[in-house]
Design a protein around this nucleic acid. Structure first.
Lengths: 334, 334
DNA sequence: CTGAAAGCGCTTACAG
DNA sequence: CTGAAAGCGCTTACAG
């Protein structure tokens, strides 16, 4: 018992008009007389007709889809950005396709940047090869960016944001301020590290190699950084740390607490991102709030604007961040 | 400077064959002679031809897409499931479309369950209306399920899983065991609450209304539950709690700690899900591990199997859970 | 092994 | 305001 799917000719026949007229009644009703419109609507209702998007897309030489290239779908950091993207794309009639750049091979990436696959691309992974992406479908970068790729970017000023964090710690009176960096080579890691170093210099504070810990944004790497920090001599190790992600800050705090130390009494901690959870742990984490939903929304809007042929200045959109002071930072112990 | 996109006729002309032959060389090479195949490959290489998926899909009367209906994309709980889904769909040549059932209106939902939109549906939201979904495209439910909807389900035994948690607390010697339930009416909430009650009964422990706290899976609702618990008299309130999500458990622990109490000394806590973060907070959380990636993968595989016309038994797949004992549970204080 | 032809379900420039 | 016709880019049953 195969279900019969009515097509546009079925509707036309029933309404006593041509398929062209049905099509017009659907996509540009003002071109059609009141009476015909009613007839078509009636025929649609009785047949249960629904437009075949694939056919329309073929005719329009588009796909109706926009691909988001995510470095790691399992990383919750991206869910809120995707949520922002989805909230714009859905109402605009675009499908949101999601591809995990880790599971998808490099060859599949090319498939995604292919006009037959998607009308546009939102890049959330700065580690992709610029060459493979250049000169293909319209794209926009969000959060991260691919160096050398000419695409508008929607992001924050990571360097300045790191400055906010470090200045906050310096203002509290800390002079030995450490930093746990993100993944080596990552554009965000580099920018935040630079902001950290800038600020120490501008405040006249010492820049020590031993106060910089390698991380990769993950909880576990924050925990490992804590292990290293715990082993350093108490009188020379940092009394405060700025970590390049909240996840690392969580890992760090958890490990330090398990060793019987207290935050912020024994060490002040600032994270980055303001993921929801860290307001609820103990102590609630001081952090840099990144407007993730807005980043996703604006990235999607800029892309749609380009697809609609709108003038795009190609300029980056820089969204502002906010230092959220909670209870994980305090003046150093005397 | 519009770029010219070569189509199958361009390739055919260059290779000196018909479009039919090019098509065969592409989709069923064994039908074509070695020599022709080479010629076609050459022509493809020099033209830079890429197959137009939309045209192929129209011809095949399919869309090449599978929609995942997610209750709330911003909720990181789903990212790992989606990751599992993506890892199966990508290699199988399907696009993963994602729709947030909160941002998408009810009418848009229908659009998604539409053969012209997607070839299949993965439902992750048990609160959708069964009627709107029934009898449309092939679908499978993962984690949550829509009561009354006839679709294979990939899930865990939530009732038994709750039993694991409560038995663990009872084994430690707790007799006043509380429960923070999930959102009212949610299928998971109902099942986990039933498992909680079952187990108390089977262990001969008291079932007290005051030990059941309303929640909604969110961090904030866990925090609120802690507020309620903190106000209850110490000698009658639960000495241990089973919370229906890790997020709530985090919110609960954070609030309790901020009031100067200690976990598990003052109260034991078991969560649900085993989200990555809760292994790193202090104390690391005892919880029920749900195989989220596997749930996503298996759901995707079962759906693909149906789409390929495979026999599907329509039976539910029940994946097993695991009690992960960490440091948030201990024997009650005497 | 290969080609000519029809067709998937739409849309739109053209003519009236 | 409306229709006939061509075409978007493929695939496949049919014939050879």
């Amino acid at each position: 018992m195969k279900k019969y799917r009515p097509n546009i000719s079925d509707v036309a026949r029933l309404a006593g008009v041509s398929t062209a007229t049905v099509s017009r009644a659907l996509s540009n009703p003002s071109l059609v007389s009141e009476a015909t419109r009613k007839a078509v609507q009636g025929a649609i209702a009785t047949t249960g007709y629904r437009l075949n998007e694939t056919a329309r897309n073929l005719r329009h030489r588009r796909t109706g889809g926009i691909v988001a290239l995510v470095p790691n779908l399992a990383n919750p950091f991206f869910s809120q950005i995707l949520s922002g993207i989805a909230s714009v794309l859905g109402p605009a009639g675009y499908n949101l396709l999601i591809a995990d750049t880790r599971t998808a091979g490099a060859d599949r990436l090319l498939d995604y940047a292919e006009p037959s696959r998607a009308d546009g691309l939102i890049i959330l992974d700065g580690s992709l090869p610029a060459a493979a992406l250049t000169g293909r479908i319209p794209m926009v970068e969000a959060c991260e960016w691919v160096p050398g790729l000419a695409a508008p970017r929607v992001k924050i000023d990571n360097r300045a944001a790191a400055g906010l964090a470090v200045n906050h710690l310096a203002d509290l009176g800390h002079s030995r301020i450490g930093h746990v960096v993100g993944p080596a080579g990552n554009v965000l890691s580099v920018a935040r590290l630079a902001g950290y170093e800038d600020t120490l210099r501008s405040r006249g504070l010492p820049l020590m190699q031993s106060a910089i810990y390698q991380g990769d944004f993950s909880l576990e790497s924050g925990r490992v950084a804590a292990e290293v920090w715990l082993q350093q001599p108490q009188d020379t190790r940092p009394t405060a740390l700025f970590l390049a992600s909240d996840a690392m800050a969580c890992g760090f705090i958890g490990e330090v607490q398990r060793h019987g130390l207290s935050v912020p009494r024994d060490v002040s901690v600032v994270g980055f991102d303001d993921i929801e959870l860290i307001a609820h742990i103990s102590p609630p984490l001081t952090t840099i709030r990144q407007p993730r939903t807005a980043i996703g929304q604006i990235a999607a809007e800029r892309l749609l604007n380009r697809l609609r042929g709108g003038e795009d200045t190609d300029q980056d959109t820089i969204l502002s961040v906010e230092l959220i002071i909670r209870a994980s930072t305090a003046a150093p112990r005397l």
